[in-house]
Design a protein around this nucleic acid. Sequence first.
DNA 1: TTGAGATTAACTCGCTCTGAGAAGAACTAT
DNA 2: ATAGTTCTTCTCAGAGCGAGTTAATCTCAA
Lengths: 243, 243
Amino acid sequence: MNSEQDFLSAYDPRAYAPVAVTVDVVALTVRDGELQVLLIERGEHPFAGRYALPGGFVRDEPLETAARRELAEETELDRVHLEQLGTFGDPGRDPRMRVVSVAYLAFAPSMPDPASGGDAASAAWVPVAQARELAFDHDAILAAGLERVRAKLEYTPLATAFVGPEFTIAELRAVYAAVWGEDLHAGNFHRKVLSVPGFVESTGTTTERGGERGGPKPRLYRAGDARLLHPALLRPAREADIR
Amino acid sequence: MNSEQDFLSAYDPRAYAPVAVTVDVVALTVRDGELQVLLIERGEHPFAGRYALPGGFVRDEPLETAARRELAEETELDRVHLEQLGTFGDPGRDPRMRVVSVAYLAFAPSMPDPASGGDAASAAWVPVAQARELAFDHDAILAAGLERVRAKLEYTPLATAFVGPEFTIAELRAVYAAVWGEDLHAGNFHRKVLSVPGFVESTGTTTERGGERGGPKPRLYRAGDARLLHPALLRPAREADIR
DNA sequence: TTGAGATTAACTCGCTCTGAGAAGAACTAT
DNA sequence: ATAGTTCTTCTCAGAGCGAGTTAATCTCAA
């Protein structure tokens, strides 16, 4: 933005090759004990018939507004936690033209199938393990989203975004187990969640019934006011992650 | 990207208002015990005379290549650590037109003043505490970069990117002190750095001379092969950060 | 109705990690 | 030489964590 040419070209963008800006959304939820992602089956070329992340062109609006709009077009997701994930703009990632896509990450409690309600009949929640060979570079975007959510569970109260407004410790533990793909020690998890200041706060009530397979009525909690977990809730270190 | 209109417009981008894509770089270094950022004094409107982050338009190249190119235009920074920070695209952030800017974060060891060598006579390293009222929304971009670097020092070996290929534990500690803005307990820091697997590895040598103000010749270390610090090197929790 | 099995919630125990402080050795500047 | 600084190691008490145990509670099936 320093040379005169740059300055002038800012007033005549057609001096440069046209670039399109889109948003793509990695919307995650935990259903049936699995981490699932919202995908769209593409009807048109390129990548017709392949699954893709929901997304579309950015209009005269902030980027996050565009992400929220695209998400609303596919589901009735409301009050979801939304954060920017990263931007993917390699030349050639879209065969038609240069497309720079700003990816967003959304977290939602378990919802009914979008196919029944949304106007996009081709939208579906898919377990992340089965979400492969997506259109464009969406495999890489999804992988970045999964890495992000796994890391953020450690040091933020993000898990509460995957459950309803009132939840049990066991429901919270199920979120961690689904996202991390490994079971957690129930007793230690319980102690840890209650000991981190501001993670959860008690409602003073319990569920109406015990668990489906027995056990006492668990107590209900709300999300607390913490933005960071101190100390963090660390998952066991894996050598492969460290090196 | 589902309606026919979207599909067609992808072949005729002028159906939408033109959008420019730029990169901006938050280049950080530690000089004189302070965290400093590379800034450019703008010569032209808008924001003439104000400082701004180095940046420019993206050409037919990957985004990271554009960031590296813009950085090279202002300094002789070589082999710097570069990572994507975030994308800033609010309408109105550039008064001329819609500009979506992908911000990158760069970390470099202490370097001579860019004014002496670079072709941009107006480039300068500025202590981050004095980098205020920048052009466009660069205050917000810089703030995001500072938050990122402070957090990443905790759980990655990023501090080694701020020092030379061989360094002392005290130099590493000075990086932490400069970035976090608080002194660290020398003994505990020493124990911690050496105990985290893969953070640093010994060269078996020491410096030629002791410190400027006395003390024995410190041992020299290289960066290790760890990508993550386990256990992390946490800074003391501040209540303001948590809530 | 009763028993088997599962779950919640709380506790114990040993180990590791951390913060704070201390101390000896090594080195520079005066 | 002396004073002051720094490097490096050590100690000690407290906090946190993984693993295991236990009592109470509840569902489901016999």
